Simulated assay, not measured.
Amino acid sequence: MPCGTTLTQAITMHLFFGSNALYPVAVMPGWLQAVSLVNPLSYQVDALRGLLLGTPAHLPLDYGVLLVAAALGILSASSLLGRLAR
C-alpha cells in the first residue's frame, strides 16, 4: 500500500529531523530545541544511547515519556478507528 508508506515516511522524517538523533540539542536553533523536548523520538534515542553505548541517560524520564506517548497514540488511534469503521 504505497499511500500508507508515504504517510508513515512523512511523519517519521519530521520526527527524526526534530530529534537528537543526528545532532546534539545544544547546537540546534532555539525553536528546534523546543521541538526536540516534546518529540518522543528524542527520548527513545537518549535511552538507546544510554543502554547501548553507556552514555549518560535519563532512563526513568525516557521510559515515562515513551509510555505516555504510546498511551496517547493508542487512545487517539482507538478513537479514530470508530469513525473510520462507520
Score class of each variant (00 low, 15 high):
M1Q: 12
M1L: 10
M1C: 07
C3T: 13
C3H: 07
G4P: 08
G4F: 13
G4I: 07
T5A: 15
T5G: 15
T6N: 07
L7D: 08
T8G: 15
T8K: 05
T8I: 10
T8V: 07
T8H: 11
Q9C: 08
Q9K: 07
A10W: 15
A10V: 15
I11L: 15
T12A: 11
M13Q: 07
M13E: 10
H14C: 07
H14L: 11
L15R: 04
L15A: 11
F16L: 15
F17Q: 13
F17K: 14
F17P: 02
F17S: 14
F17A: 14
F17M: 14
F17V: 08
S19R: 07
N20C: 10
N20D: 10
A21R: 03
A21M: 09
L22A: 13
Y23V: 09
Y23T: 08
Y23R: 08
P24A: 09
P24W: 04
V25L: 04
V25S: 09
A26F: 03
A26Q: 04
A26H: 02
A26E: 15
P29T: 05
G30I: 08
W31M: 12
L32H: 00
Q33I: 01
Q33C: 01
A34L: 06
V35P: 01
S36E: 13
L37M: 12
L37I: 07
V38W: 01
V38C: 04
N39E: 06
Y43W: 02
Y43P: 00
Q44N: 09
Q44F: 14
V45K: 06
D46R: 15
A47F: 07
A47G: 03
R49S: 03
R49I: 01
R49K: 12
R49P: 01
G50R: 10
G50N: 09
G50T: 13
G50I: 09
G50V: 10
L51M: 05
L52I: 02
L52P: 00
L53P: 00
G54H: 02
G54N: 05
T55I: 03
A57L: 04
H58D: 15
H58N: 11
L59Y: 00
L59K: 01
L61V: 08
L61P: 02
L61S: 05
D62T: 00
D62I: 00
V65H: 03
V65T: 03
V65L: 05
V65G: 01
V65E: 02
L66S: 08
L66D: 08
L67E: 11
L67N: 05
L67M: 11
L67A: 15
L67F: 09
V68P: 02
A70L: 09
A70Y: 11
A70N: 04
A70W: 14
L72E: 03
L72A: 07
G73E: 01
I74A: 13
I74W: 12
S76H: 09
S76C: 14
S76T: 13
A77M: 04
A77E: 03
A77I: 04
S78W: 09
S78K: 10
S78Q: 14
S79H: 03
S79C: 09
S79A: 09
S79F: 03
L80Q: 12
L80A: 15
L80W: 09
L80R: 13
L81T: 08
G82K: 05
G82S: 02
R83C: 10
R83P: 02
L84V: 12
L84T: 07
A85I: 11
A85E: 10
A85P: 03
A85T: 12
A85R: 14
R86I: 12
